[in-house]
Write a protein that binds this DNA or RNA. Structure first.
Lengths: 238, 238
DNA sequence: CCGCATCCGTTTCGATACTG
DNA sequence: CAGTATCGAAACGGATGCGG
């Protein structure tokens, strides 16, 4: 069975695509990067993926050591799928894919619901890495879609070792009012507003004037993080 | 016709996969990242890709503004394909794929020739970003496969803006003996040796003792850049 | 209901043949 | 050299079935 179609080249990129270049595989990984998921969770977040394919993809990912299946104790439904340490390294891959796709994203249709788990990951691909201040920062987001705390770690840690940018940037959901204090900035608005600003379809001043965006604190920081244009066209607007 | 199978999710990662998630597409991009290529060049570097699919993929990439076709003046064969500015942003995607696949790469078989153009790109996915010194560095590689100059730009530029790590790291082939002076280190060996060290299959000391690796200059720098283990397990060995 | 396996029509792929 | 046309073989997608 499974003839295992391979590119058969001595190249690490093609090797990765051998492992997870098939349809749906990277989207499964994307969802598991958020946290362990049950079968039904994955079915819900990937509605157009057939159950047979999901089973096959999970089996393949398990075979290559990217995913493990763990059995939960009797209370609550049984098995969950989660990434291994190796699998979690795919964060960089998924994030680079998301960053590239940002300009191609237009407003969601009715057939493209903004899935809940994707909301919580929406902010991370949007920030400009070059604009992250070397000393780090903390920004609180009070959005229509939820409350988030963005944490930007310092460029170099205490030992002077520089951190890869995707590991400097964390976004966590904020439920209680704890940690609400001492952020460098507080942003009120919505994900679409921030996306359109980042895409360059709406001007910053325009959004603020229209009341779609309210920024408290370090205004320039937030503005630089969501400045329009791709990374290559890094106009130093700050 | 072309039903254009789409994931149809409001997610930038799935959007990117809509655009170039089909088979061979990202490998075509990989090859074009090195430079403009003619039809026959692409056929040679992707031997198992049928000519009809190559045509179809190139057409699709052109339609989405990732690739342009340029007509060369009469002398020399006609049309070349090259990436647009937008397409060149995929460098981060391909590099992250390559970095992930590195541990899965084993020695090339006869059916997996080390293609010439991949040789020249082999070093870049191998270096540990965290080990790149903040002040920058220059390393000359005198390998069995060719001579290369690796340039590591400073962590922050003159304006104090930090550079994303994939843009700090450049590798160029070295033909003449120019630029051969003042490198922080000179490495003699071969690509397989460096790969096996990076993969942890061969110890550094072992390779040096066996004569497979000779490092002149900042030994510790090179050792840290090719230290084994994935990025997450960043043991500070330096 | 959860976690799949089986069946089957459709789409995509891969190899070869063919053309300007 | 730079593609297009054709066709059998996989892979996909949706539905349905089936044992815990």
């Amino acid at each position: 069975m499974t003839a295992q179609r391979s590119y058969d080249q001595f190249c690490p990129a093609s090797r990765t695509l051998d492992l997870l270049g098939e349809r749906w595989t990277l989207l499964i990984v994307r969802d598991l990067l958020i946290g362990p998921k049950r079968w039904s969770d994955l079915r819900a977040s990937l509605p157009r993926l057939g159950s047979n394919l999901l089973a096959e993809r999970l089996r393949a990912l398990e075979a290559t050591g990217i995913v493990t299946r763990r059995e939960l104790p009797p209370p609550a439904a049984r098995t969950v799928y989660e990434l291994t340490d190796r699998g979690r390294e795919l964060d960089a891959v998924v994030l680079s894919l998301a960053r590239f796709g940002l300009p191609y994203l237009d407003r969601p249709t009715d057939e493209q619901p903004l899935l809940p788990h994707l909301r919580d990951e929406a902010l991370r691909p949007m920030v400009r890495f070059e604009a992250m201040p070397p000393e780090g920062a903390t920004i609180r987001f009070e959005l229509a879609e939820g409350r988030y705390l963005m944490t930007i770690e310092p460029l170099v840690d205490d030992d002077g070792v520089p951190a890869p940018f995707h590991r400097r940037l964390g976004v966590s959901t904020l439920t209680a009012d704890d940690l609400a204090a001492d952020a460098d900035a507080v942003v009120e608005g919505s994900l679409p507003t921030l996306l359109w600003i980042r895409q360059g379809h709406v001007g910053w001043a325009e959004a603020v004037a229209g009341g779609d965006l309210i920024v408290d604190g370090d205004d320039d920081l937030v503005r630089a993080l969501f400045a329009p244009g791709h990374a290559a066209t890094a106009d130093a607007s700050r």
